[in-house]
Design a protein around this nucleic acid. Structure first.
Lengths: 201, 201
DNA sequence: TGGATTTTCCCTATTTTTGGGGATTGCCGC
DNA sequence: GCGGCAATCCCCAAAAATAGGGAAAATCCA
């Protein structure tokens, strides 16, 4: 397989292990070549994203990170036309995977990985739109606390706000998500990578 | 760093990406050298485990079919004296990590990985013991309901028992597990495969 | 058989959450 | 400037959970 023919890949993956692993798998097989590596999607990264003319981007959705940012592929789409493949390492809500052209699981065999890479290049999604009824920053913070099992009083103390405010936020959270129980909200937080299971109990 | 000096490492990891990644990281740094790779812990693997005189084993606990029970390290201990390091890729109950000499996270930096590898070699655990206080059948049933977000009243009606009984069971569950909050119990139930995340919200 | 465990039930009191109202401030976009 | 939204605060009443206590059957196992 000729070097010149291979597709340019950009990795946006904070795990050195996984970066080296994917490089290794691609080196074994040719066809794809890692041309750039980013470990986050910070401001400085965005210019590299724009300048580097990658054919395909493999991203670990964890970079869209807990609570702070509006999740998703759409962020990438602003800076690059490359196909975007998610690297699946953790549990995440089904809907969130659908925005990517393909999803590679860390346990996939090299053959499967290559197949999915090809698939990502041919069958491209065109309109990745972000969902509407997002939780506000504060609401996410409160939700995280709730999912951790904190009391309203504890949350109020943590953020130096009134317990009434906490309760109001919780009302809005249940209204926006449609989830009425703590158990449900905990699962919601887990599936949306707002918390890690180790953060609870 | 001399080749002859490097420690022998056995990987028991089903993910090709992660195997190649760890090989890459170790190649970059010397000191450790991957001598063998297994992708499961089947019967045939056991002889290789015994014969290969590894200094340290890195294992992805997913090969133990996870969460189900506190197996794990003890299985390895039957066939090898090597230090055992877990590769942390997914959420798992806190206690289950404690049986390993070290836990490397996929997002750890190479420096951290090496540090943990050294630590695993020096500070070795000696008695990997399993925990005792299991939940009774009824308690598991109640726990499942709690994790689903059901009210005590609803649980009582479901099993045709008094709400007092439900409360008593919940007291015993919190006492046995040491988990006081619904959020924590939900995670516990998820991690122990008592419920599926789809069963909640 | 006898002890341990499980399962069941009950009470009181307190704490916490939920659900229904409201209200003010400030910021952003049209 | 006006509407919408985010974030803050407040009250009240009802529902639910928590934390003590105790106790009696049923079941299991050694």
């Amino acid at each position: 397989m000729k070097e010149g023919n291979s597709k340019k890949v950009l990795l946006i993956i904070p795990s050195r292990i996984m970066v080296r692993g994917i490089e290794g798998v691609f080196n074994d097989l040719g066809e794809f070549r890692v041309e750039g590596i980013l470990s986050d999607i910070s401001r400085t990264s965005e210019t590299r994203l724009k300048n580097m003319d990658a054919d395909i981007i493999i991203i670990d959705p964890i970079v869209f990170d807990y609570a702070t940012r509006p999740v998703g592929r759409s962020v990438i789409a602003e800076y690059s036309d490359a196909a975007v493949v998610a690297l699946q390492t953790a549990v995440m809500e089904d809907d969130l995977w659908k925005q990517y052209d393909e999803v590679i699981n860390v346990y996939d065999s090299p053959a499967t990985i290559i197949k999915k890479m090809r698939s990502a290049l041919t069958s491209r999604l065109d309109v990745p739109k972000s969902d509407s009824h997002e939780l506000s920053t504060r609401e996410k913070e409160i939700l995280i606390c709730v999912a951790k099992g904190m009391l309203n009083k504890e949350i109020a103390d943590l953020y130096n706000i009134s317990i009434y405010t906490v309760i109001t936020h919780r009302k809005n959270i249940t209204r926006k998500t449609g989830i009425k129980t703590v158990a449900g909200l905990t699962v919601y937080a887990l599936l949306n990578n707002l918390i890690d299971s180790s953060a609870v109990e």
